Simulated scan of single mutants.
Amino acid sequence: MTSTRIPRHPVTPASNTVLLDDRRFHNLLPDEEWGRLPLAIWRRFSKRFADGETVVYVGEVKEASFTLLGFWLAQLARLIGGPLPTGTETGVPMVVTVTEDAASGGQIWTRICARSHGFPQVIHSAKRFAGPTGLEEYVGCGVSMALRISVEHEALVFHSTDYALQIGPLRLSLPPWLTPGDLTVTHSDLGDGLFRFTLDIVHPRFGRLIRQSAVFREATS
């Protein structure tokens, strides 16, 4: 796929990115577990850019599906910013940008998924190094989920552990019946600069509701 530039945000080329030994993700795991990651994954999650700088990953959706309940869940989630995929097309381009956010000390993630017809779907979220597990994903309208990370089969895996609503200084955990179930995001390295991101949402009663998998590489300028 072709290189991608995001206006007003400098894109750091993959060939000369400076690693600043960012330990924010590393500190969430024992050294032994972190050491089981492939070097390529360690490098991707050890980058820290200056405030406002962006790294861009370009790729293609390889797998996308949801049940009828998953479809309506994704539509309902539009009320809080639309954080879930709403299409099942495969073979379409997908771009992910990660931008440093000095205000929160975290990262802003933007996912742009093309469609055969109409505008692409754009999903925004922020990874914050806060909350009960030390890492949470904020999706908008005060809604966030605590994430626990682990290493499974040499992949870095993010598991949801708690959904919450932030109202001012108060963080209110949501009851299970108000949540979509267990969310898992898996980052696995494929070699040759490629990696796969897989999203699964599995409800304890209704099973897998949503699945999306895409393969990426870092864009160059």
Rank of each mutant, 00 (worst) to 15 (best):
Q107Y: 09
A74L: 15
L135E: 03
I123F: 04
T4I: 07
H124S: 01
I210V: 13
E60P: 09
T186R: 03
A130P: 08
Y138D: 04
I6G: 01
F119C: 13
D162G: 10
M1T: 08
Q75G: 15
H159W: 12
L199E: 09
D101T: 11
D21V: 02
T220A: 13
S221A: 15
G168A: 03
T86S: 14
D21W: 04
T220M: 14
D162Y: 10
R128P: 05
V139N: 01
G35N: 02
N16S: 10
R128M: 07
N16F: 03
T67A: 09
G82I: 06
P132Y: 06
I108M: 11
G191K: 01
A155H: 06
L183A: 08
G193Y: 01
G82W: 07
P176Q: 05
A130S: 11
L68Y: 11
C141Y: 03
P132G: 13
C141M: 07
L194S: 08
A74Y: 05
G91M: 14
E53N: 13
G59L: 07
S65F: 12
T161W: 10
G118D: 12
L73Y: 14
D101N: 13
V122P: 03
L178E: 07
E33C: 00
S15F: 06
D189F: 02
V58I: 14
P83W: 00
